[in-house]
C-alpha cells in the first residue's frame, strides 16, 4: 500500500458514496446513466469473485464488499425505487459495443487461461470503457448537475492515482502489469475532456454545461 493507491481507493469510494448520496437526497437519478452503473456492477462482480477464492487483507475484502453492495444498491435505486426519474431516453449508448469487444479481448490478451483470470481481465477491460454511456449522456443533454460532476471527477481521479501507484510500484517492486496499466491509461484518457471542463467550470462555481 502506498499513498497513491490509498488516495485512489478513497477517491473511488468517495465517488460511489457521492452517487448514492445524490440519488437518495434528491430522490432522483436524473442525469445518471443506468447503463454505466450496470457495467460497473458487471465489472465488480466479475473481478471480486476472488472474494471466495483468495484472501488478501481485511481492508481488501471490506472494500470489495462495499463496492459490490453499493453498486447493486445503486442499480436497485435506479431501476426500482426511483425508476420514474431515470432518464432512459438520453441513455441510449449501446453497451454491447463495449461488452463484446472487452470479452473478446480478454480471451486474446490474458496472462493465464483460467476462468477466474479471464473474468478478472474482462473486468479490467470493461472498466476502462464503462464510463462511456455516462459521458455520452452528458454530451447528449449538454449538462451535468454539480454533484454528478463531483462524482465523475472522483471516479476519474481514482484511475489516474492508480497510474501513479503503478509507477511507484515499478520503482519499489520492479514489476509492471501491462494489462492493468494500458487499460488504466485508456480509462484516464476518456476522462480528460471532462477533467478540463470540471476545472474550468465547476471549480469556479459554474454549472457544467457544454458549449
Amino acid at each position: 500500500m502506498n499513498i497513491f493507491r490509498l488516495c485512489g481507493d478513497l477517491s473511488h469510494l468517495l465517488a460511489i458514496l457521492l452517487l448514492l448520496f445524490k440519488i437518495w437526497k434528491t430522490r432522483s437519478c436524473a442525469g445518471i446513466s443506468g447503463k454505466t452503473q450496470l457495467l460497473f456492477t458487471i465489472v465488480y462482480t466479475a473481478r471480486y469473485l476472488d472474494l471466495f477464492t483468495s484472501f488478501v487483507s481485511v481492508y481488501n475484502s471490506v472494500m470489495k464488499i462495499v463496492f459490490l453492495t453499493a453498486s447493486y444498491g445503486t442499480l436497485y435505486l435506479m431501476f426500482y425505487k426511483f425508476k420514474p426519474t431515470y432518464d432512459h431516453n438520453h441513455d441510449s449508448f449501446r453497451i454491447l459495443y463495449l461488452i463484446v469487444p472487452a470479452l473478446v479481448l480478454s480471451f486474446i490478451i490474458v496472462h493465464v487461461y483460467t476462468v477466474m483470470e479471464i473474468l478478472w481481465t474482462f473486468s479490467i477491460y470493461l472498466e476502462a470503457v464503462a464510463i462511456m454511456p455516462q459521458l455520452f449522456m452528458v454530451s447528449r443533454t449538454g449538462e451535468a448537475e454539480t454533484i454528478t460532476s463531483h462524482y465523475l471527477f472522483a471516479l476519474g481521479s481514482y484511475r489516474a492515482l492508480y497510474i501513479l501507484n503503478w509507477i511507484y510500484r515499478y520503482y519499489t517492486e520492479d514489476f509492471l502489469d501491462w494489462i492493468t496499466i494500458m487499460a488504466g491509461i485508456v480509462q484516464t484518457i476518456l476522462y480528460c475532456d471532462f477533467f478540463y471542463l470540471y476545472i474550468t467550470k465547476v471549480l469556479k462555481g459554474k454549472r457544467l454545461s457544454l458549449p
Binding site: 487483507s57 481488501n60 472494500m63 463496492f67 492508480y162 501507484n165 514489476f175 502489469d177
Partner: peptide
C-alpha cells in the same frame, strides 16, 4: 506467479 502481484489492488 509474478503477474498476480497487482491483484491485491481493487
Amino acid at each position: 506467479e509474478g503477474h498476480y502481484i497487482f491483484k491485491d489492488e481493487l
